[in-house]
Amino acid sequence: MEFFENISRWMKDHPISSNILKYLIWAVFILLTIAFLRRLLRKKLPDSAIRYKSQKAVEVLGYILLVIVTISFFTGSIKDFALAIGLLTAGITITLQELILSVAGSFYIFFVGVYKPGDRIEINGIKGDVIDVDSIYTTMMEIGQWVSSDNYSGRIVKLSNAFVFKGPVYNYSKDFPFVWDEFNLPIRYDSDIELAKTIVVQIASETLSEYVSQSIAEWQQVVNKYYIENAQVEPTLAITMTDNWIQFNLRYIVDFKKRRLTKHLLNELIGTAIQKTNGKVQLASMTVEIVRVPSMVVKQEEDPHSGVINS
């Protein structure tokens, strides 16, 4: 009892220190509660998407509560919350501009749904798969750079959420998890062009049939949601006459995560089918034909004094 009486007397004699101590106790309590709830949700929720969103919701609500407690302790009344927020914002807007934009960006990303963990995006010239979005940073597994196509580079990139306000955000998977891809195939002029067209179109249609059937329904939802015209999702072949060969351009739709694998498979199957035509269809390569070599006349004269022949 005497111990508690001493504490009570000390708190009355030192009101400022007492308020600071109370605030620290509340702050530690809130932070520990956030950590406990996050750990509990991580163990109890089996679905990774729901678990991630629940943990983020607990974290955001906890930090909001911590801000309210901080303002109420240092202003003396929760009624002064709006005034304190205004004064605080006016004082730190310039010095903490990037931080404020990052926090605002996190709310924008969360409520508008710009992207979420699992999406493949490109922002500020960096492309990768989103693996985490917190109150300040977006964390991505980087794609590209020194590796070709859509392979992981192995680097984990942390990017400020403020960048969602500073430039375009390219989302490869939101609403429509497919992308269009293409490649060119050079065919010699003396080949059987109709046979070549049949081979390319048939292999593309058979290989990509699953993507086409899945993307039709997905694309219809995009058309209904946005002001956009309908598009052809079946493989298309365009032919261009060049100086050296007939160029086949195959355009097709593919899952955004399987672009490289699908292109490899199409090239392999088409190449094998062309080889089986026994020369009826031949791939072209760059050749240089010399049409004419100009003739040169060399005139020789003998110097009468030295006897040397000059050209």
Rank of each mutant, 00 (worst) to 15 (best):
Phe110Gln: 13
Gly91Trp: 06
Arg42Asn: 15
Pro46Asn: 09
Pro117Thr: 10
Ser72Arg: 14
Ile123Val: 14
Gly86Trp: 05
Tyr152Cys: 05
Val69Ala: 13
Asn161Cys: 04
Leu66Tyr: 04
Ser153Phe: 08
Ile156Tyr: 06
Lys79Tyr: 11
Ile136Asp: 00
Arg120Lys: 12
Gly125Ala: 03
Glu122Asn: 10
Ser148Ile: 11
Ala82Pro: 05
Phe110Pro: 00
Arg38Glu: 06
Ile131Met: 11
Arg120His: 02
Leu87Gln: 08
Met141Arg: 15
Ser135Phe: 08
Ile123Trp: 02
Ile123Asp: 01
Glu142Cys: 06
Val69Arg: 13
Gly86Glu: 03
Ser135Arg: 07
Asp129Gly: 07
Val60His: 09
Ser153Tyr: 10
Ile131Asn: 06
Asn124Trp: 02
Ile92Thr: 10
Asn124Ala: 13
Arg155Leu: 05
Gly125Leu: 07
Phe110Lys: 14
Val114Phe: 01
Pro117Val: 11
Ile156Cys: 04
Ile34Met: 08
Lys44Leu: 06
Gly91Pro: 05
Lys116Trp: 04
Gly125Ser: 06
Met141His: 12
Lys53Pro: 00
Lys43Met: 10
Ile143Thr: 08
Met141Gln: 13
Ala49Glu: 13
Gln145Ile: 08
Tyr115Gly: 02
Val60Arg: 11
Tyr52Arg: 15
Ser48Lys: 12
Ala57Glu: 06
Lys116Cys: 03
Ile64Trp: 03
Ile85Val: 13
Ile143Gln: 06
Arg155Ser: 02
Asp129Cys: 09
Leu101Ser: 00
Ala82Thr: 14
Leu32Gln: 08
Glu59Asp: 15
Glu142Ser: 10
Ala57Tyr: 15
Phe163Arg: 13
Leu32Pro: 03
Gly76Leu: 07
Lys56Ser: 15
Gly128Glu: 04
Ala84Lys: 01
Arg120Tyr: 04
Tyr152Asn: 10
Lys127Thr: 13
Asp47Trp: 03
Thr95Lys: 10
Asn124Met: 01
Ser48Trp: 02
Ser153Leu: 11
Lys44His: 02
Ala82Lys: 14
Leu87His: 08
Ala90Gln: 05
Leu61Phe: 09
Gly118His: 06
Ile68Lys: 12
Asp134Gly: 05
Leu96Asn: 09
Lys43Leu: 13
Ile109Val: 15
Ser160His: 00
Leu37Val: 12
Leu159Ile: 12
Ser135Asp: 06
Tyr108Glu: 03
Glu98Met: 01
Arg39Glu: 06
Ala84Val: 01
Val157Gln: 09
Glu142Phe: 00
Asp119Gln: 07
Ala104Ser: 02
Ile92Lys: 08
Gln97Phe: 10
Phe163Met: 06
Tyr152Ser: 10
Gly62Tyr: 04
Phe163Thr: 06
Gly125Gln: 05
Tyr108Ser: 05
Val58Met: 07
Val67Arg: 03
Gly105Glu: 00
Val69Met: 14
Ser72Cys: 12
Phe73Asn: 15
Ile100Gly: 00
Arg38Asp: 01
Thr70Ser: 15
Phe73Thr: 14
Ala82Val: 15
Tyr108Trp: 10
Ile109Cys: 05
Val103Asn: 02
Ile156Asp: 04
Thr89Trp: 04
Phe110Ala: 12
Phe111Arg: 08
Val164Pro: 04
